[in-house]
Write a protein that binds this DNA or RNA. Structure first.
Length: 576
RNA sequence: GCCCACAUAGCUCAGUAGGUAGAGCACGUUCUUGGUAAGAACGGGGUCACCAGUUCGAAUCUGGUUGUGGGCUCCA
């Protein structure tokens, strides 16, 4: 109850600060047209149409004006007026008029403070002087009512808290998030790059990023074989006709790369991996006895994403899905779904993601198949979730046109959400490609097809892992697990001996043999977030040992080589 | 795609009355061989993203292109 009341008060304050900002903008930009100004997580925004574009330099000026307004401490006055009065009041505010016309109530509520009156349900603070710590953070463009066909307004975002301390705490959390940004760490830790010369959204994996990827992919393969998947490889381009048959050309044309002509035939870069898998399935007659068949592929796909949506590794134009397609009988669907969900949970746990949200998306307005098919499949997905006692939320109408799905959103250490694994039942492709099997009765039956990824895409996964761990990857994923630091040049030979021995047992180790001081080498290994530093000098050489330092800064002192080796191997095997 | 901002050495960034460029780190050479987060000196390195325009003269002003960032819309 206490926190609820507190939240309500905070919401009220944030909303009032939005009004105060609007008043400040009104006085600084005469003729401003006002959109809406709601509260959001941590703060608020307000949308305006102004005579000129705002720049970041405008924010402190607006903040100063807001402080003046707060100092004047005008009361927030609630008033109820008729629709006609409202139309008169907002006669020069086209966006407000639009809102007035949409509210069905007979009388409308307005709030007035100082010289500013806004159409607003409230509630608000008693007076402007109750506003507390706030800061305007950034300006951005935003379509009126989120519709890209309507005018773009200028939005000012701000944050507001009950106290200066809370505001500063929030700002420092933001700063920590910026430090963990995978785009920044990707450069610092030498994981990946994108190049103007190659094209936006197309990723080059550097050796260290590639190590992480390779380890995860190897792990993925082993786990899939163990769970009855067959691994396949299929081409990255295919004739355009195939994509017409599948419906991709019709439904996703805006997201496809233009076809290319080869020997008078049009070919297209693949946006999905399914079709190759379907053709493998169809390469011979399938009996009900041989189902389910599970074809898995780390399949690279290319999708044309609009430039404005690209984001580091998390939203790209070429990416590798850990894809698989399960072909099964209707009576096998539920069991398969449970198997996939188990695999998802296992992968998430192995990668260190403890927080995730599960969403079940149901039938949209436009759909393939019959309502009954959707009903049954949705029930199957539900039962599978319930068998694993997984809490989930239903996203009504958010399914893809070809079938219902389960999406898993991961939450990283900073609370960012990432769309990861997805499990989709498909009613479209089996029909279009006549994907069937011979049943017990000797006749053809349409197979059920399940698309699924358990990691999502390798690119997005690396983004997510990097931010989750802040670049300090667990030992099993660390590109370099240990750096051996000889104190003086005469210790390099000993360091290399250790490195050879460790390497032969699968430990990723480097010798920092530069003629630099130990302090520098420690600092750099630390900045590289290498889990173990083995410092070796005269003492260690004489006792077949190394002095062990962890990236946490902890100095574990002298330890026998066998123990060090064992310690690293145990940590790697535990995936810790 | 849309709105706004930004683009200077490999990296992080200085460089506002327009007069052909700087620092730190990194890199190279040399000296130093040092016990738990940066030893020192010297040196190499930039057609100031690209293309036009204004100007006697453009990193600096204008327009366009490309890319990046913050958002909006979108994300099979």
């Amino acid at each position: 109850m206490m926190t609820e009341a507190k939240n309500e008060q905070l919401e009220r304050m944030r909303h009032s600060v939005a009004h105060i900002m609007a008043e400040a903008v009104q006085s600084l930009f005469p003729g401003a047209k006002f959109g809406i100004g709601p509260t959001i997580e941590h703060g608020f925004y307000y949308d305006f149409e102004l005579s000129r574009a705002l720049t970041p330099d405008d924010l402190p000026v607006i903040e100063d004006k807001m402080r003046e307004i707060i100092a004047q401490d005008a009361s927030f006055v609630r008033d109820e007026i008729s629709r006609d009065e409202a139309r008169t009041l907002f006669s020069d505010q086209p966006y407000k008029l639009e809102l007035v016309d949409e509210i069905p109530d007979a009388s409308l509520v307005v709030y007035k403070q100082g010289s500013f009156t806004d159409l607003c349900r409230g509630p608000h603070l008693a007076s402007a002087g109750e506003a507390r710590a706030f800061k305007l953070t950034h300006v951005a463009g935003a379509y009126w009512r989120g519709d890209e066909k309507r005018p773009m307004l200028q939005r000012i975002y701000g944050v507001a808290f009950e106290s200066q301390e809370e505001l500063e705490e929030h700002l420092s959390r933001q700063a920590e998030a910026a430090r963990r940004d995978h785009r920044k760490l990707g450069k610092e830790l030498d994981l990946f790059s994108v190049h103007e010369e190659i094209g936006p959204g197309l990723i080059c994996w550097h050796p260290k990023g590639a190590v992480i990827r390779e380890i995860i992919e190897d792990f993925w393969r082993v786990e899939h074989r163990r769970r009855g998947y067959d691994i396949v490889y299929t081409p990255h381009i295919a004739k355009l006709d195939l994509w017409k048959t599948s419906g991709h050309w019709e439904f996703y044309r805006d997201y496809l790369y233009s076809p290319m002509e080869i020997e008078g035939q049009e070919y297209m870069l693949r946006p999905m991996n399914c079709l190759g898998h379907i053709l493998i399935y169809k390469s011979r007659l399938r009996s009900y006895r041989s189902l389910p068949l599970r074809y898995a592929e780390l399949g690279t796909v290319y999708r044309y994403e609009r430039t404005g949506v690209l984001y580091g590794l998390a939203r790209v134009r070429g990416f590798t899905q850990d894809d698989a397609h399960i072909f099964c009988r209707p009576d096998q669907v539920e069991g398969e779904l449970v198997g996939v969900l188990n695999l998802v949970l296992f992968m998430m746990a192995s990668l260190g993601f403890k927080e995730y949200k599960v969403f079940l998306s149901t039938r949209p307005d436009k759909y393939a198949g019959t309502a009954q098919m959707w009903e049954e499949a949705t029930e199957c997905l539900k039962r599978a979730l319930e068998r694993l006692t997984l809490p989930y939320a239903v996203d009504p109408g958010e399914g893809v046109f070809y079938g219902p799905k389960i999406d898993v959103k991961l939450e990283d250490a900073l609370g960012h959400e990432w769309q990861g694994p997805t499990i989709q039942v498909d009613f479209n492709l089996p029909q279009r490609f006549d994907v069937c099997y011979i049943g017990e009765d000797g006749s053809d039956h349409t197979a059920v097809m399940i698309h699924r990824t358990v990691l999502g895409a390798m690119e997005r996964l690396l983004a997510c892992l990097t931010e989750h761990y802040g670049g300090a990857f667990p030992v099993w994923l660390s590109p370099v697990q240990a750096v051996i630091i000889p104190i003086a040049d005469r210790h390099v030979g000993y360091a290399q001996e250790i490195a050879g021995e460790f390497r032969s047992e699968g430990i990723r180790v480097l010798v920092d043999d530069r003629s630099e001081r130990m302090n520098l080498k420690i600092r750099e290994a630390q900045l590289d977030k290498v889990p173990y530093m083995l410092i070796v000098g005269d003492k260690e050489m004489g006792s077949a040992s190394a002095s062990l330092r962890l990236r946490s800064g902890e100095d574990l002192g002298l330890e026998g080589l066998a123990d060090v080796k064992n310690r690293i191997k145990v940590a790697a095997e535990a995936r810790a």
